[in-house]
């Protein structure tokens, strides 16, 4: 899952980015609205965490610019917590709203909730075949048995399960699993697919030659 954090306050942006990375998100960052909008328009993020009070271009302008072209989920992050501001934010097309100062755990929970809703899942636990994923507890189970996975393996499984019954291209996987600074080679994808197949059985991830990968729910 790839996230964009747009926040002008350096310390705050750093800590949000680091936290989300620790939650195995691929995170990009922007220190102002203009750059943020550029990135948001040029990459398919799973969610944008957007601050309102920013120099050059404020959060509302970024949101309006983004909504003209894309329906990327947006979580507004701001120091204003008047009801009218929240209403304004939601009316502008934001998916959720979080007032500063916030709890990091709440931020992560909301980011996950917004992404789940966009994916059509309302429950953090989804079962595909005999594999069950819990995005909140960050666990993968094969039958009743919990299987240990690395952060990247989990992220890949999460992405494939979210897009279950769809063919997921290697480019898509690459874009959503690695952030802009990640130098990982694309053949790293093969490694993760291999490891997941090892742990959950060969039939968990099927290869569509020339197209990509698919996880089938039945």
């Amino acid at each position: 899952m790839r996230v964009l954090v747009v926040e002008d306050q350096d310390d705050l942006r750093e800590v949000v980015v680091e936290t989300l990375r620790e939650e195995s998100f691929a995170v990009d960052e922007s220190a102002d609205g203009e750059e943020g909008l550029y990135k948001a328009l040029n990459w398919d993020y799973d969610i944008v965490v957007l601050d309102v009070m920013m120099p050059v271009m404020n959060g509302w302008e970024v949101l309006d610019g983004l909504r003209k072209e894309k329906q990327t989920p947006v979580l507004m992050l701001t120091a204003l917590d008047q009801v009218c501001d929240k209403v304004k934010g939601l009316n502008h097309g934001a998916d959720d709203y979080l007032a500063k100062p916030f709890d990091l755990t709440e931020l992560v929970a909301r980011v996950r909730a917004v992404m789940r809703r966009k994916g059509g899942d309302h429950c953090p636990e989804v079962t595909v075949g005999n594999v069950t994923i819990n995005t909140t507890a960050k666990t993968l189970r094969l039958g009743d048995k919990e299987v240990e996975v690395t952060a990247r393996e989990f992220a890949m499984a999460e992405l494939l399960i979210k897009h279950r019954d769809e063919v997921v291209t290697r480019d898509f996987l690459y874009d959503h699993l690695f952030d802009e600074n990640d130098e990982s080679m694309s053949n790293m994808l093969d490694v993760y697919v291999y490891k997941l197949r090892q742990k959950f059985g060969k039939s968990f991830i099927k290869t569509r030659r020339g197209q990509g990968y698919i996880v089938e729910s039945s």
Binding site: Q9, D11, L12, V15, A79, Q82, K100, P101, F102
Partner: peptide, 25 residues
């Protein structure tokens, strides 16, 4: 008052999230 509390929120948000981050593991 609104302005003052707004100005206070950013540093508080930094302190809160930075310390939560540091303590999370």
């Amino acid at each position: 008052t609104a302005d003052a509390s707004h100005e206070m929120r950013t540093p508080i948000a930094v302190i809160l999230s930075k310390s939560q981050f540091a303590l999370s593991k």
